[in-house]
């Protein structure tokens, strides 16, 4: 291989070894899935589907990424399928009507309702490193979000996906997207305030 006239050795090509997949990656993929779908049975099924899909498409493996990265990408696509199915299962009325736990945090004139106003917290209150329990509460609060909000919020904040990509995947308008991001955050924050502070 020649780059800039110099001889370089090609990078080592990764190989697939499906016999080894379960012992090497099953638990890793399961942990990856469970924090994104929050359902043990579904996470388990996703791991199984990922391996089977991997076997089917071994031919497409170019060897540029590691086996683990490649399998994780397959799993991620499958998780997005789950999100998409959930969203497509909602009727338009339901999509517009998803309010989460709280009907509305604001008065009609746009001011905070007294009981929903954010309360100031101490410096260490929201420090997960200082308290593992906080992560558990955060997960619980995430799970309480309506399916569509959870999907949008996860794709944006955890996976760092581009807004355009999320809108396309979940068939949302940009305006809808920002309303969902906002409502999800309002609910998540309120849930943390109720259960943590």
């Amino acid at each position: 291989m020649f780059i800039d006239g110099k001889m370089t050795t090609p990078p080592a090509r990764h190989l697939l070894d499906p016999q080894n997949w379960v012992s090497a990656y099953a638990d890793f993929l399961y942990r990856y899935a469970i924090s994104r779908v929050n359902n043990e049975d579904q996470a388990r099924d996703l791991v199984q589907e990922t391996f089977l899909a991997g076997l089917q498409s071994q031919r497409n493996f170019a060897g540029k990424s590691s086996e683990r990265t490649w399998l994780t990408a397959i799993l991620k696509n499958k998780i997005y399928d789950v999100y998409r199915k959930k969203v497509n299962g909602l009727k338009t009325a339901e999509m517009n009507d998803q309010t989460g736990e709280e009907p509305d945090f604001f008065h009609e004139d746009g001011h905070w309702k007294q009981e929903h106003q954010p309360q100031a917290f101490g410096v260490d209150d929201f420090d997960p490193l200082a308290n593992k329990e906080l992560n558990r509460v955060l997960l619980l609060c995430l799970q309480k979000l309506p399916a569509l909000w959870f999907s949008v919020f996860t794709m944006k904040h955890m996976e760092d996906e581009a807004t355009e990509m999320i809108c396309k995947e979940l068939r949302l308008t940009q305006a809808n997207f920002w309303v969902i991001i906002h409502r999800a955050k309002l609910n998540l924050r309120a849930c943390l305030q109720r259960n943590w502070m």
Binding site: S35, L138, L142, M158
Partner: peptide, 11 residues
């Protein structure tokens, strides 16, 4: 802002 950081760190 803090919640954004926490969620990111969580995963």
């Amino acid at each position: 802002k803090r919640i954004n950081e926490m969620v990111r760190q969580l995963l």
